[in-house]
Amino acid sequence: MMSQILPILIATLIAGTPLVYAALGELVTERSGVLNMGVEGMMVVGAVIAFITMQTTGELWLAVMTAMLAAMLLAFMFSVLVVSFRAHQVAVGLAMTIFGTSFGSFIGKSYVGMAIVMEPSTLSALASKIPLLGIVLGQLHPLVWLSWALFAGVWFFLYRTRYGLIVRAVGEAPSSAHAIGYPVVLIRYLCTLFGGAMAGVAGAYISIVYTSLWTEGLIAGRGWIAVALVVFATWRPGRCFLGAYLFGGATIAQLFAQSAGIGLPSELMSALPYLVTILVLVLISRNATLMRLNVPASLGQPFVAGG
């Protein structure tokens, strides 16, 4: 029994990891009152920049860092438009996704079809020797472990630190936060940059670790799923974390079902993770009280000092 469950568990953790990064980054962004619909484009840019860096240098962590910086540059452009110039957040986010996707396709065109040969991780080899947990940890990349640390860090930051309380206050009542001296604009910039950085890491993970290749359409809507997961989680890190693995599990389930020869069209099986996400969102959105209690009151609304 364990020999059958373990591969599914490991595959679920691997598939859900990019969504953990992207969704937790977006959660922090939205907690500050900014709705970033450009996550998909930022993930695409992060994925292609990481792949090019890895092909050129062979340095994994340098590739992850460049992906973070590239996605943060897009997040900065987004912040200038929506925070400083108070442009419509949804429209600018969609424009960023279109730009990021097109830019990624353009600069990654000559790398389509190439693959990365990943060397076995020394850290994973060491982790495999840990009693009981080693059988799982040894088969996971360190970036998967870091996503767990990210979840713990985001939860602790938002609910156990003064700065997390300030971020939540800015998302709930920016005018009140400004009136007592908090730099609302700076806080929203920083939270959006953090969200962009995590989208970059998510993209890097997909192109370097998860698939080890670059091709157009590699992100396959995961950026949109990450935004949806924040709503699914009702802006709570723990639910966001579990939701990412729910999607990962649905992705793996359809792969195992196809390999088992279940007589359903492959297109329907491939759509299963997205159908699951939509179904969960519909069920969650029916509880209007739950949504009102958790959604940041100023989400998507521009801040005007003195307004």
Rank of each mutant, 00 (worst) to 15 (best):
S270H: 10
G203D: 09
A226V: 03
L283E: 01
V282T: 02
S212Y: 04
L255C: 03
Y210I: 04
S270V: 11
R236W: 05
L272S: 06
A257E: 07
L272T: 09
R236K: 15
A250D: 02
A233D: 02
T251S: 08
G263S: 10
L281H: 06
T234C: 12
I278C: 03
Q254N: 07
L246V: 15
P237D: 10
L281Y: 09
G223I: 09
P273F: 01
R239A: 06
L281E: 08
I252P: 05
A250Y: 03
L229C: 05
A199N: 07
R292I: 00
A271S: 13
G221H: 12
I225K: 01
G248N: 02
T211N: 13
V282S: 01
C240Y: 00
L290M: 01
Q258L: 09
L242R: 01
R236G: 02
M291G: 00
G243P: 08
T211M: 14
A220V: 11
V276G: 06
V276H: 08
A228T: 03
C240H: 00
I262R: 12
A271H: 06
A202R: 14
G261T: 04
G195F: 11
L229G: 04
S259P: 00
G249V: 08
S212W: 05
G217L: 13
A233S: 14
L293S: 12
L213D: 13
A202D: 08
P237W: 14
Y210V: 03
N287M: 09
A199K: 09
G196K: 13
G196F: 14
I252Y: 10
S285R: 01
A260R: 05
G223Q: 08
A288E: 05
A253W: 09
F247K: 04
L275V: 11
F194P: 03
L255V: 14
A233M: 05
W224Q: 02
I206T: 05
L255Q: 15
L246W: 08
T215M: 15
G248M: 01
P237M: 10
A197P: 07
G217D: 14
L279W: 12
I225M: 02
G238A: 10
I278V: 15
A228I: 02
A250N: 04
W235L: 03
G263M: 07
M198W: 12
L275M: 08
I262T: 13
S285V: 02
F256C: 02
I284W: 00
V280W: 04
Q254K: 11
A288C: 00
A288N: 00
P265Q: 07
F232W: 15
T234Y: 07
S285I: 02
I262S: 12
F256V: 10
